[in-house]
Write a protein that binds this DNA or RNA. Structure first.
Lengths: 348, 348
DNA sequence: CAAATCAAGGTTATCGTTTACTCAATTTAA
DNA sequence: TTAAATTGAGTAAACGATAACCTTGATTTG
């Protein structure tokens, strides 16, 4: 087997050529004091000439810092994770850390193996992007004092470890309020699994908006899904088959909204003329839908960035001001909502 | 600053407790011969007890292998990259390598910085997932003898370095042939940028299919896009405004197909009744469209897996059987294509 | 002018493994 | 029974950089 990677010059070589010790070169590289201007310049020049790059492994071994941050994700899928990753990427680029990527695929064995590998100090910190709370991981990480931050919708808000989320309740409220403002009175919601606090938060927001508008809540208009497209399809059919179907559907997330779209397309019900649909998340692909989906924007990239920055601070040994931070959601109006067909509400 | 990560036990400690030298422990860990059964058992037990994990950095420093594979991607976006990443993930999980993720964001400076960092032997190999040929990177990698494999549609097929692609031409041919088989005669195509060989390959396949079916090629039905949704919208409008519009549109890729959908939705033209649409790539989100998009499947995950495996072989110092491999595309029939409205072709 | 301070730089141990080489004890072959 | 081969284990030198601790000469200070 031939030598694979070209042999690069080491600090020792640079030191020799410059006629100094490696210590001095190290000082220059790490911008530490104790080196004269002339010497420094000479060394810098040599470094340039040799196209010298510090050996990562040696540095890591000595300093105990790998320069690596591990991201655990459940499943490489939706735009949700992608949006967050984008933000993480951005934040890490500045810090010079490399992002290691790992998908658990919901397999516990895989997950454990991964966790075990991290324990050899090969990671500086961990970002958890798991859709439900994997207490196990968090606990292990805590035990081993590996810094980490959890991002996104999770089972329970906690202050035991740092988390980044968004104002879900407000999002649910805003979505519903918007539909009301368009004149809708019969507004359905397809929630996520109700054992998740974030699903309940959406629903609570929905309820609050209706109540404030003085609209009675009709339990028939509240369906539970599992945040998957198929649930959207199914629940939409169920809603359409109601004796008195809604004029608008708040889909809980964008995937379910896509499902609602499909059901409506099948039934030849035009959006937004005959039915308004609003999503949640504002995943990248929602803008691609026909018509483009009005939805609640979660600042995914910002959440990722925030989480990464918090982690970086943790790694640097600094204290966090707050263990849980929530970024704000906002309404993105596109083309899937309009006033209900019959115009204004009939006089009572 | 307090100690951050828990101090883990080292080989030395294990060795001491077992009353052997570190060499012996190392042999056990690396499954090398030269250790008696009893000793081996004793050491293994101690390893278990201590929950010992090898120190990555030390190992890396000594062996010159980081256990890391870097993936360069242009931009964290579509399902295209995601699909491929999924395959890579799978392949690497088996080998135990960690996947480092990097998005160039099309910024050359960032890219250079990244490349420079890899040169310190901190990577075992590189996977290039860049939509156009970044000769610079490949050349540098080649120079420094860093093993790498390029994946996906690229500018020019090459045998200078290993690449993984798919049978694009055949895909273009199949898509067109399928539309013809449904009875379409006026079939439009929205290509990608024609300076890309992969765009030209789709077009060539389209032409061949038409020719074989004895259908004259109408240049008015051939438009060029840039693989973006907006191009799909725009070109679709142009096609609809033709004196004699097509009855089917081959959209070049799925994003453009989504654009076509939007334009058709605006004009209230129903798919597939009044217009058939076929995509290319079979990105995850196409199944979410309304109606679900019929498209040409690129085996993205398989491509990623293949590329990763090739890279692994390269890293192990093995020869590749072939420098360029092409996996086959296939037709995925969903609901966006049907026979043209007017039924069969009028007799001539 | 002696003592204290300081800046520039060097010595050396160390981080935790791997590996080439050595060595003694034991087994095998002749 | 003795030389040769095999086996189980140890020694010590890397791998490349960092950091605590010195040394030296120059400059400052009282």
């Amino acid at each position: 087997m031939e030598q694979r990677q070209i042999k690069r010059s080491t600090m020792t070589q640079i030191a020799e050529e410059a006629g100094v010790s490696t210590t001095t070169v190290s000082k220059v590289l790490n911008q530490l004091p104790g080196v004269g201007a002339k010497t420094r310049a000479r060394i810098l020049e040599l470094i340039e000439q040799h196209d010298y790059v510090q050996n990562h492994a040696a540095r890591h071994l000595r300093k105990g810092q790998s320069g690596l941050i591990d991201l655990a994700i459940m499943r490489l899928e939706g735009g949700y994770d992608l949006g967050i990753m984008r933000g993480i990427q951005d934040a890490l680029e500045e810090s010079g850390h490399r992002l290691v990527f790992f998908a658990t695929n919901e397999d516990e064995a895989t997950e454990l193996l991964w966790l075990r590998r991290l324990l050899d100090q090969s990671t500086d910190g961990v970002l958890l992007l798991l859709p439900y709370e994997r207490i196990g991981i968090a606990k292990t990480l805590l035990e081993h004092k590996i810094p980490f931050v959890a991002i996104g919708d999770r089972n329970e808000p906690t202050t035991v470890f740092p988390t980044v989320g968004s104002t879900i309740w407000l999002g649910g409220y805003t979505a519903t309020e918007y539909l009301i403002s368009l004149g809708h009175r019969r507004i359905a919601i397809i929630t996520g699994p109700l054992h998740l606090t974030t699903s309940r938060a959406r629903l609570a927001g929905y309820r609050e908006a209706l109540e404030r508008a003085g609209i009675a809540i009709d339990p028939a208009l509240i369906c539970e899904g599992n945040y998957l497209l198929g649930d959207g399809v199914q629940q939409a059919y169920a809603l359409l088959d109601l004796p008195k179907p809604p004029t608008a559907i708040f889909a809980g997330n964008d995937a379910q909204a896509a499902g609602v779209y499909q059901a409506l397309y099948q039934r030849n019900i035009r959006i937004p003329d005959a039915m308004s649909v609003i999503g949640f998340d504002d995943v990248a692909s929602t803008a691609q839908m026909s018509p483009p989906l009005t939805t609640i924007h979660q600042p995914l990239a910002e959440m990722g960035k925030m989480a990464a920055n918090m982690l970086l601070r943790l790694i640097a040994g600094q204290q966090l001001e707050s263990n849980h931070v929530e970024l704000s959601t906002s309404l993105v109006v596109r083309e899937s909502c309009a006033a209900p067909r019959q115009g204004l509400l009939p006089a009572r």
